[in-house]
């Protein structure tokens, strides 16, 4: 019985370690995250640490470069989203209202306020 108990303990611990490992991998690797939503539906989450260009459906393209996000292409008439300042790890959003695309940086900085009045 004692041996079985130890075996069980070892198995459960291993399972826990595995689960923890998987969850850590799935979550964007620490730090700040870019969350893209289209028409209120989550489109994807990306780490700000990795430079990349993200095509958002047929309408918009955004870019992560040096920890900052900007909209680089949009087929909307006013292009306000492309003129918006880049969003960094301090958090914030870029919105393409006509295409209902929201680029939102979720800051990992716990000092950041709950929201910003602008």
């Amino acid at each position: 019985m004692k041996k079985k108990e130890i075996m069980l303990a070892a198995a459960i611990l291993l399972a826990a370690l595995l689960l923890w490992g998987i969850l850590t991998l799935i979550k964007p690797s620490g730090g700040d995250t870019l969350r893209i939503t289209v028409n209120n539906q989550l489109y994807g989450e990306y780490s700000l640490k990795e430079d990349q260009t993200i095509r958002i459906g047929q309408t918009n393209i955004c870019e992560i470069k040096d920890g900052a996000v900007r909209m680089v292409k949009a087929d909307c008439p006013d292009h306000l989203c492309m003129k918006s300042e880049a969003v960094t790890g301090e958090g914030g959003t870029i919105v393409c209202l006509p295409n209902r695309v929201i680029l939102e940086v979720i800051s990992s900085n716990s000092q950041a306020p709950d929201t910003v009045a602008s």
């Binding site: 969003v87 301090e90 914030g92 950041a112 910003v116 009045a117 602008s118």
Partner: peptide, 9 residues
């Protein structure tokens, strides 16, 4: 409070 003429947030 947003800092005027600065990056968003």
């Amino acid at each position: 409070i947003q800092k005027p003429f600065s990056r968003r947030n």
